[in-house]
């Protein structure tokens, strides 16, 4: 399972890299989204994929019992997803704005006149 997910994460990342190398900025956005998901999947896999008990501390104890799963990767991924979502939203707006101003989504054609 670990190997499969690791490979999958790599493939998703590679597809993302392929897409962000395109000149079309809409594809670039899709590439960013894919890379972000690939990385999240990578963190999930690196955090260890084992069947453990849920990491809940019973009310009469102070510490997590041994053999519980590690909740931290999920917490990190959640944060990363939220941040990635915000960034994606901004990127899309910026590209929409570029399209309005330049009438183009080809990064090579976006050349400002006043340079």
């Amino acid at each position: 399972m670990q190997t499969t997910l690791a490979l999958l994460s790599g493939i998703v990342f590679a597809c993302g890299v392929f897409l962000i190398l395109r000149r079309n900025m809409v594809k670039f956005v899709f590439g960013l989204a894919l890379i972000s998901q690939g990385i999240n999947m990578g963190i999930f896999t690196a955090g260890g994929l084992v069947r453990h008990r849920a990491p809940l501390i019973p009310s009469d104890q102070d510490l997590l019992a041994a053999g519980s799963a590690d909740p931290l990767p999920q917490a990190m991924i959640l944060t990363a997803i939220v941040i990635g979502f915000g960034i994606l939203a901004f990127t899309i707006v910026l590209i929409l704005r570029t399209y309005e101003v330049f009438g183009q989504v080809d990064i090579d054609e976006v050349r400002a006149v006043d340079r």
Partner: peptide, 20 residues
């Protein structure tokens, strides 16, 4: 944006591997 975002993703990936 393009280059800095890619840098951030690499950093996040590195942090994930380090945690693993």
């Amino acid at each position: 944006m393009a280059l800095n975002l890619f840098g951030s993703f690499l950093f996040l990936g590195g942090a994930g591997i380090l945690y693993g």
